[in-house]
């Protein structure tokens, strides 16, 4: 994935996806990539962990906080993630305060009485050393008092935040119940969609529209077209290779007018089709509109480096 493509899936977009804020089409696209694209799946996991950590550290604010609590926390698994993150944080804070405890107990260790010292020896203590000792002890006490004061203020602040949150949660419960009603009506719509799906599908027998694309040549020739009829589920592109030079390939579908990426494949290998070698990829028909597209083929070497091989133009026609 190029850095330009990466920016299309920046962290903010993934956060909006995790918080259920994206439109349905974009959500579905990320649903697909979260399973079919290794890199997006990995980035999504990283962003989710950081989001959960940010929540338990009270770094999530405003609308994101509201969405987190109303949407993200609506699943038992995700609530467990939050509890896990909280345990990690508690451990981190406990570890972080440990050195302070060592200082407090370690600065003035109890002196082992000198059994050989005479009873009068106390009178012979060097006064400057004694004063220095008292001064050190006083300094330590001051530091401890300061630390406790700051800690106390922090706890008060946390209690106040806790009370605020509790009232916020009460409000959220009411909102959630109203959201529940809305979801129930959305469910009725989902049922309709499902019925439509069942009518057009019989189990996993997908209706496909294939298109064989020859290697691009310099001669002027008509752009091949693919006709998409109603009821078609998948478009299958067969990109013919001039030579099979790479162990793996990737295909990116672009809108030539805007150069915007509409879809990208996972890593695929070339297969034989008669005497020719082809790279076969497929995607949902819903991605195409009646216009021209370019399927860009990239070869991936055994070392993982990628090289653009060719762009295969074609036109989509809806029937």
């Amino acid at each position: 994935m190029s850095s330009q493509d990466k920016s299309a899936y920046d962290d903010q977009l993934l956060i909006r996806y995790l918080l259920g804020e994206l439109p349905a089409e974009e959500t579905e696209r990320l649903d697909e990539l979260s399973i079919a694209d290794e890199e997006v799946a990995a980035r999504l996991s990283g962003v989710e962990n950081d989001l959960v950590d940010a929540y338990v550290r009270a770094e999530v604010k405003g609308e994101d906080l509201r969405r987190f609590e109303s949407f993200y926390l609506s699943s038992a698994n995700r609530r467990e993630k939050v509890q896990f993150a909280r345990a990690l944080l508690t451990r981190e804070r406990g570890t972080a305060t440990a050195p302070a405890m060592v200082i407090r107990t370690g600065v003035a260790p109890p002196q082992e009485p000198d059994k050989k010292a005479s009873p009068r020896r106390g009178l012979q203590w060097p006064w400057p050393a004694l004063q220095l000792g008292f001064a050190s002890a006083a300094a330590v006490l001051l530091i401890m008092a300061g630390y406790l004061l700051v800690d106390n203020m922090r706890l008060h602040e946390q209690m106040r935040e806790s009370r605020n949150r509790q009232s916020e949660f009460d409000r959220r419960e009411r909102d959630l119940r109203s959201e529940l009603d809305q979801q129930r009506s959305a469910y009725a719509q989902a049922q309709e969609e499902l019925q439509h799906f069942r009518d057009s599908q019989s189990n996993l027998e997908l209706t496909t529209a294939p298109l064989l694309l020859l290697p691009p040549s310099r001669s002027v020739s008509a752009v091949p077209a693919i006709s998409l009829r109603p009821g078609t589920d998948l478009v299958v592109l067969l990109l013919t290779l001039e030579s099979d030079d790479f162990p793996a390939y990737r295909v990116v579908l672009k809108d030539p007018a805007t150069r915007q990426i509409r879809w990208r494949s996972a890593t695929v290998t070339a297969t034989s089709a008669g005497e020719k070698k082809v790279v076969s990829v497929s995607f949902r028909v819903g991605l195409l509109k009646p216009q021209n597209y370019i399927a860009e083929l990239t070869g991936i070497s055994a070392q993982g480096s990628s090289e653009l091989i060719a762009g295969y133009p074609f036109r989509a026609v809806l029937k």
Partner: peptide, 28 residues
């Protein structure tokens, strides 16, 4: 989604534990 019970109960289930866990997750 076709299983009506699943769908409805998932939202019922969602409505309560949110509070329970959110509160348990507060700094207090």
């Amino acid at each position: 989604l076709r299983g009506n019970q699943h769908f409805q109960s998932s939202f019922e289930e969602a409505a309560h534990p949110v509070l329970q866990v959110s509160l348990s997750g507060s700094p207090g």
